[in-house]
């Protein structure tokens, strides 16, 4: 049984409906990539899993999220809070703003293990120092008594990762953990994170818009397009035989070594706006294979020869 099973959830924020029937699963110890262009609903999906959607004024209107056999939709906030940080942890998009600027780094990591594991101050500190060291930060003790502004962005993100690991969660949700960082350290941080997750056998939902990162780190991938799932498949399959035209475009756009500069082409057309999604398949204005049916009818997310895809005309 999957550790996390998200079944056709839809979300509304005010009059907007940014997510429509999102479906995917994550197994224990699995790394699932969640990819899609900006605005496709990646962060909102993470908020749904974390149970934080009400904090931004959103609500899940239908569907189900089952975590380790427990239905999360309708779960009382007080019980959800015991999962957050303890069994499901978040690594946020922007390390620069994710730490409390006037509280010592150490106290912010200690807080998690004190809260969820009931550790004493000394035990929590020892644990935090160990975690800091595991993230390959030199001089853990000095970092433990530093303030966030004294650290670089990369260091801060390592601290956020340490914080996520502090209570030994089963699932980590990482929302574009490196986009705010310098390109040179992005790969390094992803690598450290993936290593720690693999070592501990944790499940990771890795949100990114970088197919290179997906290829490097993930077991399976969910491709989102404008608030819907376009395709979900194992990593080998998705690169070898993408079923959805949008996935094909994404893969085509990965920059490759030895490629002539300037030959890099984005996907033609623009991402549709949430206030004006096209009828039928939302990818139809940009799709080379689009036909009449695509404009009239929403393609269902269906089982293909491998994985799932939502396209009227995808082969097999």
């Amino acid at each position: 049984m999957a550790l996390l099973s998200v079944q056709s959830i839809s979300v509304s924020i005010g009059k907007l409906n940014p997510l429509d029937g999102i479906t995917f699963t994550i197994d224990k110890g699995e790394i699932l990539g969640l990819v899609g262009e900006s605005g496709s609903g990646k962060s909102l999906t993470a908020m749904c899993v974390m149970g934080l959607l009400p904090r931004i004024g959103g609500a899940i209107t239908k569907g189900s999220i089952v975590f380790d056999g427990c239905e999360l939709i309708g779960l009382p906030e007080i019980e959800f809070r015991r999962l957050r940080g303890k069994r499901i942890a978040l690594i946020s998009q922007n390390p620069m703003t994710s730490l409390d600027p006037i509280i010592l780094i150490g106290a912010q990591i200690d807080q998690v293990s004190k809260l969820h594991l009931g550790l004493s101050a000394e035990a929590a500190k020892a644990r935090s120092l160990d975690l800091i060291a595991q993230l390959r930060i030199p001089e853990p003790a000095a970092i433990h008594r530093a303030y966030p502004h004294q650290l670089s962005g990369g260091m801060k993100q390592r601290i956020v990762i340490a914080m996520a690991l502090a209570a030994d969660p089963d699932l980590i949700v990482a929302d574009e953990p490196t986009t705010a960082l310098d390109v040179t350290i992005q790969a390094q941080i992803i690598q450290i994170m993936v290593e720690l997750v693999r070592d501990r056998g944790l499940a990771l939902m890795l949100i990114t818009h970088d197919m290179g990162v997906v290829a490097q780190a993930c077991d399976r991938v969910v491709v989102l397009y404008s608030g819907r799932v376009a395709e979900m498949n194992a990593i080998g399959e998705i690169f070898a035989e993408p079923k959805h035209p949008y996935t094909r475009e994404l893969i085509r756009c990965i920059p490759r070594l030895g490629q002539e500069p300037g030959s890099l082409k984005g996907i033609p057309g623009t991402v549709p706006s949430i206030i004006d999604y096209p009828d039928g398949c939302r990818f139809n204005p940009r799709c080379g294979d689009a036909r009449e049916l695509c404009r009239a009818q929403v393609p269902a997310l269906e089982r293909k020869s491998s994985g799932l895809a939502a396209c009227h005309f995808s082969e097999v």
């Binding site: 934080l52 904090r55 940080g85 946020s92 922007n94 703003t97 730490l99 409390d100 600027p101």
Partner: peptide
Amino acid sequence: KDFVMMLHAKGVP
């Protein structure tokens, strides 16, 4: 602020 959302994500009451 972001860090407050992060505190909620950490499960702080």
